[in-house]
């Protein structure tokens, strides 16, 4: 018999624990966010929002989740079954990877990686891929149009996003998210947003576009494309896209918090609560936009990107490089 010494490195333990914790975090957050979104929408629209199921309607999301899980999964005739079911899974799985390098607190991270930022950017691309696959494989023309929109939108908006992120990376000289956090001080004027307001603006606008949130929610655009790429999905197929959208919202807000808002640091009692507060503030802003603004038109969206965001992002990067 071969005696193998099983060595479990501490890093691996941390990773596994981290992933489990993240799964719980993402799930819990998605449930809270769906509830929050409805409450925010309700109050913006001068109605109470959900309030029947549980106290303050807190169990509404659980009830909806049960409903979604209980629903039959249907697939249109002529659809490509393999890709059709691959798409929602592909939308949701990379989310865990995206969360791994994010430092929620001083020691609260699952993967300390020098290239954490690059990791997030690399895996964010899978989201678009899932949208494309969903739209293409569902054998639906609206889905196809939604997928085409998703592609051109995300390809376009990835560039200014990268430019904005690079400006911060240049300033800090690192892709390590923990290092970027620690490069900023606890007070708001020490945060990167004070130094790089333009980069923050570009990042946030692009983040809205990348997560397909209004006013840039063109791939689904229900008044134009019925439901865009997920027109044909039922039950949890749709549910996974829905979860992924909220998870992605947390991701982009977390990255914005780390890059621009000083991460988990706050003027008093630095810690994960500061991180969560900042993330939720950004998410609330995203919801506020969604329930206030009309949707932009597709060519306007692309013009905004190519004619404003990319030149501005490049100029911002140049100035940053010159100063650094």
């Amino acid at each position: 018999m071969l005696q193998t010494e099983i060595i479990v490195p501490a890093e691996l333990v941390r990773l596994v624990l981290g992933i489990v914790a993240l799964a719980a975090f993402v799930g819990a957050n998605a449930i809270v966010l769906v509830w929050l979104e409805r409450k925010v929408a309700g109050h913006i629209q001068r109605r109470p929002g959900p309030f029947e199921v549980g106290p303050y309607g807190l169990l509404q999301t659980a009830a909806d989740a049960a409903k979604l899980i209980g629903k039959q999964l249907t697939m249109p005739a002529g659809a490509d079954a393999f890709l059709f079911w691959l798409a929602p899974i592909l939308a949701f799985l990379p989310v865990f990877v995206l969360f791994m390098p994010i430092p929620f607190g001083e020691n609260l991270y699952s993967l300390d990686m020098d290239l954490g930022l690059v990791l997030i950017l690399a895996y964010a691309g899978f989201g678009v891929l899932s949208l494309c696959l969903a739209g293409w494989s569902s054998h639906n023309k609206w889905g196809l149009l939604g997928a085409a929109r998703a592609v051109s939108q995300s390809v376009a908006y990835e560039i200014p996003l990268l430019l904005a992120v690079l400006a911060i990376a240049f300033m800090t000289g690192s892709f390590n998210l923990q290092a970027i956090t620690e490069g900023q001080g606890p007070w708001p004027w020490q945060w990167n947003v004070a130094v790089q307001p333009l980069a923050f603006f570009i990042y946030f606008a692009c983040a809205l576009a990348e997560t397909n949130r209004a006013p840039f929610d063109l791939p689904e655009a229900e008044s134009e494309l019925t439901a865009g790429f997920h027109t044909e999905y039922s039950g949890m197929g749709f549910g996974l896209f829905f979860l992924a959208e909220y998870a992605n919202m947390i991701v982009v807000s977390s990255v914005a918090t780390v890059l621009f808002l000083g991460g988990w640091q706050g003027p008093v009692f630095s810690g994960w609560w500061w991180f969560l507060a900042k993330v939720y503030a950004l998410i609330l802003a995203m919801m506020w936009f969604r329930w206030t603004y009309p949707r932009v038109r597709f060519d306007q969206l692309l013009n905004l990107n190519w004619k404003w965001f990319i030149p501005l992002g490049l100029a911002n990067l140049l100035v940053t490089v010159a100063v650094v």
Binding site: L119, L121, A122, A124, G125, L129, V151, S154, E158
Partner: peptide
């Protein structure tokens, strides 16, 4: 990571398009 970022995130998406 660059392999993923550039090929999966951009090149493949463009081919898809």
């Amino acid at each position: 990571l660059m392999q993923l970022l550039i090929y999966v995130g951009a090149v493949v998406i463009l081919i898809f398009f």
